[in-house]
Design a protein around this nucleic acid. Structure first.
Length: 361
DNA sequence: AAGGCGTGGGC
DNA sequence: TGCCCAAGCCT
């Protein structure tokens, strides 16, 4: 005989809510193979679902399986990542595919959390998500959604990324993870955080955890999770010449493999306009370059003021380039990764009305 | 342990 | 405009 007086567990309430209100039609929820789940989890790191949708479809169409990805050129992988940001994700994704093919017979080691965590770009939470979602084996995640739900449910104060707080959260997350329906539970926790337990204006009235949510009862919902301590970011400035040929090709330079925009193609950079003019005169003997209006680009840890300059070349044919340099035609784009503001600048080249000149630097 | 690492959106 | 954030990982 069933014990009707037994109270629902945390997981049971979350799962019941999921059955009625959870998301079940996202592209990566169909045919949940380790590969498909993995690609989605990497794309979704620090990135919202709405942004990922188009990237995911294009990526899966071009790289339907791990073997195809493993043999691709890095330029092409970065091409399909252009605009998504955090490009180490793409570089690690590519390396990870090669590792899976070479050392795991083309199969993700989903029966071994530690082996999953050892793969490039896969940390503890992503490993848990891939295992739970693609195999249903018991595994725990602790992503931004779960952190938000748990800091509120348990009224845990302190910035969640702080190691001491994160340890507490992992313990809670592990404790709540059920033994069955782990895949649904994992998706449910992310859905709860993404649709109800949101950063601003959470919908507590619809929440299956409201009855014993500590933050709700203590009136702390709006204070949690504790925000990241803010720091002022420095500002940098750079000059970027658009060295163009009469046929529309533009000179690009590849970024170093590591660091900001690692492996992407960008415009040449100079710390000052004097340095840039010197280089232009020495290398290309162009007519005086013309300043375009400044472009401001904010990264996580610094703000960049880009000073683009128009530097047309009067030569026929394409001057030869060396390793790490190439001529690129915005109307016949190659499959290479481009930094977002560079891509926009190149697109503005053939939109004369958007190409604003300026007298000052 | 704290900082590097992108971009677009909401307000 | 500026600020804060959004399914983290790596060193």
């Amino acid at each position: 005989m069933t014990d009707h007086s037994a109270p629902d567990t945390f997981a049971q309430r979350v799962l019941r809510w999921f059955d009625q209100h959870g998301r079940k039609h996202l592209p990566w929820q169909q045919n949940q193979t380790p590969y498909r789940v993995w690609v989605s989890e990497i794309m979704l790191q620090q990135t919202q679902v709405a942004t990922v949708l188009d990237y995911y479809e294009r990526f899966m169409a071009r790289f339907p399986d791990v073997a195809t990805l493993a043999t691709a050129a890095q330029d092409e992988v970065l091409h399909l990542w252009t605009g998504l940001g955090y490009y180490s994700r793409a570089r690690n994704l590519h390396r990870c595919a090669q590792t899976v093919v070479e050392h795991h017979q083309g199969q993700f080691p989903v029966d071994d959390v530690d082996a999953m965590c050892a793969l490039p770009g896969i940390g503890r939470s992503t490993a848990g998500a891939i295992i739970a979602l693609s195999t249903g084996q018991r595994a725990t995640i602790l992503d931004g959604n779960v952190k938000r739900v748990l800091t509120r449910y348990h009224a845990i104060e302190g910035w969640p990324a702080q190691p001491k707080i994160e340890r507490q959260l992992w313990a809670k997350a592990e404790a709540h993870t059920p033994d069955s329906r782990v895949g649904d539970y994992t998706q449910a926790m992310m859905d709860l955080g993404a649709t109800l337990c949101t950063r601003r204006r959470p919908t507590c009235t619809c929440c299956p955890l409201q009855m014993d949510c500590a933050a709700y009862h203590q009136g702390l919902v709006d204070q949690l999770p504790t925000p990241k301590p803010k720091k002022t970011i420095p500002e940098r400035s750079t000059c970027m010449p658009l060295v163009t040929l009469p046929d529309g090709h533009v000179l690009l330079k590849q970024r170093p493999a590591e660091g900001i925009w690692g492996g992407l193609w960008s415009l040449p950079e100079f710390e000052s306009s004097a340095e840039m003019h010197h280089w232009l005169a020495w290398k290309w003997a162009t007519a005086p370059a013309q300043a375009l209006s400044r472009v401001s680009h904010t990264f996580t840890h610094f703000k960049l003021q880009i000073h683009p300059w128009l530097a047309p070349l009067n030569v026929s044919g394409q001057p030869t380039t060396t390793e790490g340099w190439r001529w690129y035609h915005p109307q016949k784009p190659d499959s290479i990764g481009l930094a977002a503001p560079v891509k926009k600048l190149l697109e503005s080249l053939h939109q004369p009305q958007q190409l604003s000149l300026t007298e000052s630097e």
